[in-house]
């Protein structure tokens, strides 16, 4: 693996900033470094060449930005968090006429569909508007398509069972067929979401870093999990500020199990287990 210096990272960030609307200067240095190293390896070149190539070739620049910003996501990651949504948070939405949910940095959408499945089981599906955004339009295409590799997702089916088929509070079990929500084709290694789920969400590109709220009415719930770990504290504050502004009074925010709100925005939210609430 190619090793790069901090100076080279800075040069690269500057070049991307000059050539595009993307500013990576506040990205968490650690994972950013490795992603650039991976780029150099994949393209078999050094930083100098990479910079000169992306200045001349906008398609290449586009691809580079996408490679850097791609994130992984899974179905029903962290069952405990989903239990809290199912048994504590979402029941409090029962009396609302309309529910708006924003999956910020939704990547390929597995978690967004997990949410839709849960909403449907709770009878909240019809009245909910779900928006999925990501910086990267390629992952949004995958999300819109709702088609995933079965083998990769197989271990998460167990999470699905944990969240959808049993109540941890009383041990009660529910019957539920996967077919209601997705089709599994083991031979073709496919897991495909059913059409009524695909029809529900709107997806649009959005750059959290821009700090702009351009998604219409405020949200009752924002889900942004394992995205902020790639940002430094400055940028995190900016994003928390955006989330604060984008939530209705008393609205909720869910971030990754190992993420927390630090800094100036921390006293504008109260926290209960995995869920933050706007004060």
């Amino acid at each position: 693996m190619m090793e790069i210096t901090n100076d080279e990272i800075n040069k690269f960030v500057e070049a991307v900033k000059e050539q595009s609307s993307y500013d990576f200067s506040d990205y968490s240095e650690k994972s950013f470094r490795r992603r650039i190293e991976k780029l150099l390896n994949d393209n078999n070149c050094d930083v100098e060449k990479l910079i000169s190539k992306l200045s001349k070739d906008s398609a290449f620049l586009n691809k580079i930005v996408k490679d850097i910003t791609v994130n992984t996501t899974e179905m029903f990651r962290d069952p405990k968090m989903w239990h809290q949504l199912r048994y504590q948070l979402l029941p409090s939405f029962q009396n609302k006429e309309k529910i708006r949910i924003w999956h910020a940095g939704c990547s390929t959408g597995e978690e967004l569909y997990s949410m839709l499945i849960l909403l449907n089981e709770m009878g909240l599906f019809e009245r909910t508007e779900v928006v999925g955004t990501d910086l990267n339009e390629d992952v949004l295409k995958v999300a819109k398509n709702g088609q995933y590799r079965y083998k990769f997702n197989m271990v998460y089916i167990e999470n699905f069972d944990q969240v959808m088929k049993e109540n941890p509070n009383n041990g009660e079990k529910y019957d539920l067929d996967y077919e209601k929500y997705f089709i599994i084709d083991k031979n073709r290694d496919l897991l495909k979401m059913n059409q009524f789920l695909l029809d529900k969400p709107t997806f649009q590109t959005h750059d959290l870093v821009s700090g702009k709220h351009e998604l219409g009415e405020p949200f009752d719930l924002i889900i942004c999990r394992n995205v902020l770990i790639y940002f430094n504290n400055n940028l995190q504050n900016k994003v928390f500020e955006l989330f604060f502004k984008s939530l209705v009074p008393g609205g909720h925010l869910v971030i990754g199990v190992h993420e927390s709100i630090l800094g100036p925005l921390s006293n504008k939210f109260s926290k209960m287990a995995q869920v933050y609430q706007k004060k």
């Binding site: 901090n6 650690k30 994972s31 394992n226 770990i229 790639y230 990754g256 190992h258 993420e259």
Partner: peptide
């Protein structure tokens, strides 16, 4: 299900990269 890293800032960083 997370990568655990030590940053140059001397703090822990987590990542869900592949």
């Amino acid at each position: 299900n997370y990568h655990l890293l030590v940053g140059l800032d001397g703090k822990f960083h987590l990542s869900v990269e592949e």
